[in-house]
């Protein structure tokens, strides 16, 4: 249970960054931290103590394996995170070019 709480703490560190930071890059990094925490939480959830990785090896006796389902879904999620990070970075580049600042409090006119 303490592991879950630590993982949630990591998520909350990301939320803290989103709430209090004003630099565009810091906001992107906060989102990345939240993504790490969620991925790690899902994989923690599928771990089975003393089990092996979910790959069937020839000749070896089939022992207990960890849950392959969260791993497969987290694999998907990691790849999508990379795509969204790239999209965020592109948007941030455009914003910085237009407003010449990284400070989101100075970017007021979002309508053109």
């Amino acid at each position: 249970m303490i592991l879950y709480i630590l993982c949630f703490t990591l998520f909350l560190v990301g939320v803290y960054g989103l709430l209090t930071k004003r630099d565009l890059i810091k906001l992107i990094l906060s989102l990345a931290i939240m993504g790490y925490a969620v991925n790690l939480f899902l994989v923690l959830f599928g771990y089975r103590s003393g089990a092996a990785y979910p790959i069937v090896t020839e000749g070896a006796a089939p022992g207990p394996m960890v849950d392959p389902l969260p791993q497969a879904l987290v694999l998907t999620s990691i790849v999508i995170e990379l795509g969204t990070t790239a999209l965020l970075v592109a948007l941030a580049i455009r914003l910085v070019e237009k407003y010449k600042t990284f400070d989101i409090h100075k970017i007021r006119r979002l309508f053109g």
Binding site: M1, Y47, S49, M65, D67, P68, T76
Partner: peptide, 30 residues
């Protein structure tokens, strides 16, 4: 921690190799 539910996944773990022919169960699921 260490005691997952594994209700859906039990089927994947037990029949993954014979159903899909993939030794790696993660890629079998994906």
């Amino acid at each position: 921690f260490g005691e997952p539910l594994m209700e859906t996944s039990r089927h994947y773990v037990d029949h993954g190799l014979s159903d899909t022919g993939a030794a790696n169960l993660v890629s079998a699921v994906i």
